[in-house]
Nucleic acid binder design. Structure first.
Lengths: 226, 226
DNA sequence: TCTCATATTCAACGGGTGTTGAATGAAGGA
DNA sequence: TCCTTCATTCAACACCCGTTGAATATGAGA
């Protein structure tokens, strides 16, 4: 009598749903991603998601739990005082880290979109999980100040905010606006913009503004500018 | 038979609806603000909004048309080559401008939230209306480069993006996170953070990193840090 | 007083949302 | 073969959304 009811897939495990959710979050933002859209992406019914996760917020937190700790571990390693690199090299390594983990495209938009807005509960979930990264970053800055590399009159939390927030903006904006101002491929333009940003930033926060950068000063040549 | 149908207000003109919409946009973001919420804020029925505006997007564009041109006019005045101020003074004046127009709290979140996401049509509406500001800003930078104040190896569009995007981030974040890192009042912490940011930024983009700032270097004292 | 343009509301439409509960599929063990 | 457990779907709930059309209240002018 009723239509035959058969699974569309032999097996669809928790991780597959999580991966689909990450893709949809990346496209639509956390608020804009609907359970039905995630289900469509995963190739199943929306109800199945509730078999694995309590609700939408639980998916979100599961993504954070999976993706953030590896980043935090690497930042903590950089903050280790026995790491022989200069502060500039360490901070540039953090930028590379964020660059790489954001080209796995979901996480950044997930975090950025929810860090402030998007319901206070979700905001707190983000802030709580990102705290270890923040702590390690501040340690890098304080050590840089003690070693006479970073200006001592800058509050580390602001120095960190400047660096990371702008990196997030660059990751968001430059690939989109690159064709408007350069003939470079978006990917190459992104890398250049990151280097230019770090050049400006490090010159701004270093005790010695002419201190060498951890990469050759390859800026954008005039003939590549539009 | 049916309940008596009477207006709740003697008069509610287009501007009152617009003001209510701006307040709700500021609280909820453009996407998150519902017509019914705007109507509730204005104290009328949602249908009345459609008497004055074609649809939701029309409200949004009306807000931009009302608020953006005054800012653009002031930035253009700063870009005028006959303005005798230094480039640093001009750029700091732009920051003050954005600070002031954003404490009329709606506009910034309206623009920020919609510049990238929030439907391509709305994105274009923002970009199109902000274009005059962008043009004037780039003129300021180019002039600064010709006068030997700004490093000639920086693409003006990136220099502009660094300055304004970070100012937007500061306006968003610092009032919220101030209590976590300083004993200053949020308002005062915001002003200090803006000065610190401009200090770092100008040191990064100036030809002479020790060039004087347009304000006394009043940073955050250690005893005000937490 | 009657008329008419303006201002405002009510009720509904179609569609999307997160979520739930019951029903049914497949698969493995006794 | 039967039973149980896991995986999956269907159908529905209550609610919110932007928008529309018809109805009605208001106030000014003739």
């Amino acid at each position: 009598m009723s239509a035959p009811r058969r699974p569309k897939h032999a097996r669809l495990d928790r991780d597959a749903v999580l991966a689909a959710a990450l893709r949809v979050f990346a496209r639509e933002g956390v608020e804009g991603a609907s359970m039905r859209a995630i289900a469509r992406e995963a190739g199943c019914d929306a109800s199945l998601i509730y078999y694995y996760f309590e609700n939408k917020e639980a998916i979100f937190e599961a993504i954070l739990d999976e993706r953030v700790p590896p980043i935090a571990r690497q930042v903590r390693r950089l903050a280790n005082p026995r790491d022989p690199r200069t502060t500039a090299e360490k901070l540039w390594a953090v930028i590379r880290l964020f660059h790489d983990h954001a080209s796995d495209p979901g996480l950044r938009s997930v975090i950025k979109g929810q860090a402030l807005r998007g319901g206070p509960s979700m905001g707190n979930a983000v802030v709580r999980r990102l705290l270890p990264i923040q702590v390690a970053m501040r340690a890098i800055f304080r050590r840089g100040q003690r070693r006479g590399e970073v200006r001592p009159d800058l509050p580390p939390i602001l120095a960190m905010m400047f660096l990371l927030r702008m990196e997030a903006e660059i990751l968001d904006l430059v690939p989109v606006m690159a064709p408007a101002f350069t003939t470079l491929e978006p990917e190459e333009a992104l890398l250049r913009a990151e280097r230019i940003w770090f050049d400006v930033y490090w010159r701004g926060i270093a005790v010695d503004p002419s201190a060498p950068l951890p990469f050759p000063p390859a800026l954008i040549a005039p003939e590549e500018l539009r």
